[in-house]
């Protein structure tokens, strides 16, 4: 049996205005279906504690659920629990029209933190990152430079970024360059 590794095996950059690191393996499940379905709501509550409102993320310890689109959630669980969680979902949603797919190894997860984290993100995404506009609990899918990404704030000045694994190195380089020393903009 081989051992699962994340795309960049925990690479980090901390010589700039914000620290960037790859967060390693995280279990991720794409759940598509009718988000108003009672069975589905119950199943998601069992994992993330609650069902996230549109454009928000619901986090509970290491687990969470993020609102991806009107018919899609991204469920986050520890990497080792993915298969059992999917089995639970399949059992509890039997008979409803849904899809639960393991996308853990198709994703890379990064954290950008430090007092200038907002600036680093604002350099790369066409999104308003001012403290009045982008707040804790919000979840946004957009692009960072040339690749699609989703992000939210774990705490003030700490962003989690999720992207496709195939562009993990690009994403890491991108965030590191946007965070390089002396590149403060002080615009936010």
């Amino acid at each position: 049996m081989f051992e699962a590794v994340s795309a960049l095996q925990g690479a980090s950059f901390n010589a700039g205005i914000a620290e960037v690191r790859e967060l390693g393996l995280r279990g991720m499940i794409t759940l598509r279906g009718d988000l108003t379905d009672k069975k589905l709501i119950k199943a998601v509550k069992g994992i993330a504690g609650r069902i996230p409102e549109p454009r928000t993320v619901a986090l509970k310890d290491d687990d969470g659920a993020a609102w991806m689109s009107p018919d899609e959630l991204l469920l986050m669980v520890p990497h080792a629990d993915v298969l059992s969680t999917i089995e639970t979902l399949n059992a509890s949603l039997k008979g409803t029209h849904f899809l639960a797919a393991n996308v853990s190894d198709a994703r890379a997860v990064f954290e950008v933190f430090g007092p200038h984290a907002r600036e680093v993100m604002a350099k790369l995404a066409p999104v308003d990152f001012s403290p009045d506009a982008f707040k804790m609990g919000m979840f946004r899918r957009s692009r960072l430079a040339q690749v699609p990404a989703a992000f939210w704030m774990n705490e003030e000045d700490a962003f989690t970024v999720v992207c496709f694994r195939s562009v993990a190195e690009y994403m890491f380089d991108l965030l590191s360059i946007a965070a390089q020393a002396g590149s403060e903009v002080d615009a936010l």
Binding site: P54, S69, P126, R141
Partner: peptide, 12 residues
Amino acid sequence: PCCGVSGEETEF
């Protein structure tokens, strides 16, 4: 109108 996000052209 589906997700309520207001974005600029390159996001679409």
